[in-house]
């Protein structure tokens, strides 16, 4: 009986040969994409070395991708270019103070963030962290207040009667609008946990649960559709772009 290790080596050798032949015939770029696509899909069989290889590559490349993107978009464009332009304005052109000098404070805070790498000076990284936390808290407060709070309440608070183009009462649209308003209010009541869900309050909360169940069902169905659409996209990539079996 053949050793399992030997079988493994044969599988790897055959796999490399197949991919090499396909890379030569279909192109290196598309074969590389197909190699990693099949690697991730191989998890459907079981957790295996091919999947682990693709997963490890994904981790490294994702980290590198974000590193490079943030370096060019934030560190280079804002800090290096900004301070360089400020230097030019102030010292070369003699134009005095330039607001972009303030980017140096951002750079200093960024360097302080790296102090986390040194255990004794790690506490100082809380200063840049405080800027991030404060900015996020302030930004989220306003964004959610406007987009999730005011706009949603405004959209719900309106006349229930709906009319068609001829000016007649549109019964179905009116019923739908009533369901929309009742559903929103009852859903909010369900989320109010400071009072026990009993009696009339409990009855309204029950309607809230039904509304939320319909929402979760619709959202779940929508998610299933989007995931399957991605799956179809990947299959199309393998069958059409790579192997060119379908046009």
């Amino acid at each position: 009986m053949m050793n399992t290790k030997v079988v493994g080596y044969i599988v790897i050798a055959v796999g490399i040969a197949v991919f090499a032949i396909l890379a030569a015939s279909q192109g290196l770029a598309v074969t590389l994409g197909a190699f990693f696509t099949i690697g991730i899909f191989s998890f459907l069989y079981k957790d295996n070395p091919y999947y682990k290889f693709s997963e490890a590559a994904f981790v490294g490349i994702s980290a590198g991708y974000w590193f490079v993107s943030l370096f060019w978009q934030n560190m280079y464009s804002k800090l290096f270019v900004g301070v360089g332009a400020a230097y030019h304005t102030t010292f070369v052109q003699g134009g005095g103070w330039d607001d972009r000098w303030m980017m140096l404070i951002g750079g200093l805070l960024g360097v302080l963030m790296l102090m986390r790498l040194f255990p004794k000076a790690g506490w100082i990284s809380r200063w840049p962290l405080a800027v991030v936390v404060g900015a996020t808290a302030g930004l989220y407060f306003i964004n959610y207040f406007v987009s999730n709070g005011i706009l949603q309440l405004g959209a719900s608070a309106g006349p229930l009667q709906r009319y068609d183009a001829a000016g007649n009462l549109d019964l179905w649209a009116t019923i739908s609008q009533a369901i929309l308003v009742i559903g929103t209010l009852s859903g909010l009541i369900y989320f109010y946990f400071s009072k026990e869900h009993k009696g009339a309050f409990g009855g309204v909360a029950k309607i809230g649960i039904w509304t939320l169940m319909l929402t979760f069902g619709a959202s779940f169905g929508y998610t299933v559709m989007s995931r399957l659409s991605l799956l179809i996209g990947r299959m199309d990539y393998l069958m059409s772009d790579w192997l060119q079996l379908i046009n």
Binding site: F67, L70, N74, G110, M113, V132, A135
Partner: peptide, 11 residues
């Protein structure tokens, strides 16, 4: 801008 620069250092 500082937020963006700190983000780049954080990565």
């Amino acid at each position: 801008d500082w937020f963006g620069i700190i983000q780049a250092f954080a990565i």
